[in-house]
């Protein structure tokens, strides 16, 4: 299957290790991965901050870039939700039928990584090995937007050596919310304090999620507190094998610091 990777601007710029992990994983599962280099950003930040015109422009660009692929996979639940849920709304507000047609054509083919693995490829055991104690934070857009349900847990359940521990209050927002984190910093920090408390209560070594923007927020707080808990994108755990435990460094030729949103342990 020929799959286009939508890396997202945040991963492209700040967490390339996650992208390399997705490439490694998808190839291992027999996919041919393309990276359309004209891609930039889905426009979520603009739309959610109140700039729908810029968001529509970026959405048009997205549908141009990703037209014609069998499937588009992205390691971000919130960006996938942006395309699938918000693009049709933007298209209704935009003049002319061509954009609406492009959205109707492309948006349904965009999948968050766990969704693509479980629903499209039909796998839950991806041949990964990660002998660590892991807690999973389901992120709001995956949970209530895309309704991923237990797909991430099933994928993590198939990982050799991984001990998945339940996260108390998992369904509660971590307080990131895009620009919310800087426009309402006090409430955002108060929400994250509770999330971090719950993470620490699990005794997990690694906090995993399928969205690096939430992990940047939780991980940044953990790191500020010198909590000694690492955050990792789901793709990085699923890419790790017994032969190549160096998660996030992904494909052999990779360089740079690997793991996701980073913690004290990664530095």
């Amino acid at each position: 299957m020929r799959v286009a990777l939508f890396i997202t601007c945040v991963n492209d710029t700040l967490f390339p290790g996650t992208g390399r992990a997705v490439v490694t994983l998808l190839r291992r599962l027999g996919c041919e991965v393309a990276f359309p280099e004209a891609q930039t950003c889905c426009g979520q930040m603009h739309l959610n901050t109140g700039y729908p015109q810029e968001a529509t422009r970026l959405a048009r660009h997205f549908t141009d870039v990703f037209a014609g692929y069998d499937a588009v996979v992205t390691p971000s639940g919130s960006c996938a939700a942006m395309v699938r849920e918000q693009y049709p709304r933007l298209a209704r507000a935009a003049p002319g039928p061509s954009f609406a047609d492009a959205v109707a054509e492309t948006a349904p083919k965009v999948h968050d990584l766990p969704e693509f693995l479980v629903d499209v490829l039909g796998v839950t055991d991806v041949g990964a090995s990660f002998p660590h104690r892991v807690a999973y934070h389901p992120t709001c857009h995956s949970l209530r937007g895309l309704r991923l349900g237990d797909r991430p847990a099933r994928l993590l359940g198939g990982v050799r050596g991984l001990e998945l521990v339940p996260l108390p209050g998992a369904e509660e927002c971590c307080g990131f919310g895009g620009t919310f984190a800087v426009k309402n910093p006090a409430v955002s920090a108060a929400m994250c304090a509770d999330k971090v408390h719950n993470v620490m209560a699990t005794g997990a070594e690694v906090l995993c999620a399928a969205d690096n923007s939430c992990l940047m927020h939780i991980g940044g707080t953990l790191r500020r507190q010198r909590a000694g808990v690492r955050v990792m994108h789901l793709a990085e755990i699923l890419a790790a094998t017994e032969d190549d435990p160096g998660t996030g460094r992904g494909a052999k030729a990779g360089t740079g610091s690997g793991t996701g949103a980073g913690t004290g342990a990664a530095r």
């Binding site: 890396i7 390339p16 280099e37 994250c192 940044g220 500020r224 360089t255």
Partner: peptide
Amino acid sequence: DTRDIPDIPAESFR
């Protein structure tokens, strides 16, 4: 104020 910023990688994914 309350969070560290992630390390900027030397090389972007693209």
